[in-house]
Amino acid sequence: MPTPGRARVIVLAGPSGAGKSRLAARLGLPVLRLDDFYRNGSDPVLPLITEGANAGLIDWDDPAAWDHEDALAAVEKLCATGSAEVPIYDIARNGRCGSQSIDLQGAAYFLAEGIFAQEIVRECDERGLLAGAYCVTQHRAVTFWRRLVRDLRERRKPPLVLVRRGLVLMREQPEVVARAVALGCREVGPDQAHDEIRALLR
């Protein structure tokens, strides 16, 4: 159980479209959306795609496109104080568009979910903040389709870019999962993750 007065984080990593946000909604815990810590599109340190049809575009699937330190600081503050001010990111506009306050309202656990969530697992564990870390996965075809439907609905990028990106991500999904596992996550399906986390909360 968490130390009295101190919350702990449950990390939900996994490929984009694998069902992390749906799982978080089912669990009903406070959620820190780690994808809101993307860097602004004007940031000069953003990595670029170097080959393929999307060469020259920003590589939003590279962890370097994400502000690791800001995300980790938000997790630490939520664990220590129960509240934090965090950014709101607009993917369609490639930038932060405001901020919001997250208040755990006394909850002993909260979720941190996003495609780069695995990048903070080791540090959270070393600092005594981690309650569990899961890499949520589904069949590559299911992930591809759900991601494409969501991204088209939200008009995140031009359709052709989304299709090309989605095909690349479908091929690379095993590597994404393997990296998350190497960084301390357990590979699970959404239903298994749900059941295990609900058991943790009892």
Rank of each mutant, 00 (worst) to 15 (best):
I88N: 06
I88K: 09
Y89D: 07
Y89K: 09
Y89T: 07
D90I: 05
I91T: 09
I91V: 11
A92Y: 03
A92I: 04
A92M: 01
A92T: 06
N94L: 04
N94V: 01
N94P: 01
N94G: 00
G95H: 02
R96G: 06
R96I: 07
G98D: 10
G98I: 06
G98R: 07
S99V: 05
S99Y: 07
S99T: 10
Q100W: 04
Q100V: 06
S101A: 13
S101F: 11
I102V: 03
I102E: 00
I102W: 00
I102Y: 00
I102H: 00
D103M: 00
L104C: 07
L104N: 00
Q105P: 07
G106L: 08
G106D: 10
G106Q: 12
G106Y: 13
A107W: 12
A107E: 14
A108I: 05
Y109L: 08
Y109H: 15
Y109F: 15
F110H: 01
F110N: 03
F110D: 01
L111H: 10
L111W: 13
A112M: 14
E113N: 11
G114Q: 10
I115F: 03
F116V: 04
F116H: 04
A117S: 09
A117F: 07
Q118Y: 11
Q118S: 13
E119M: 02
E119S: 00
E119H: 01
I120D: 02
I120W: 04
V121D: 11
V121H: 02
V121N: 03
R122F: 03
R122C: 01
R122V: 10
E123T: 12
C124P: 13
C124V: 14
D125H: 15
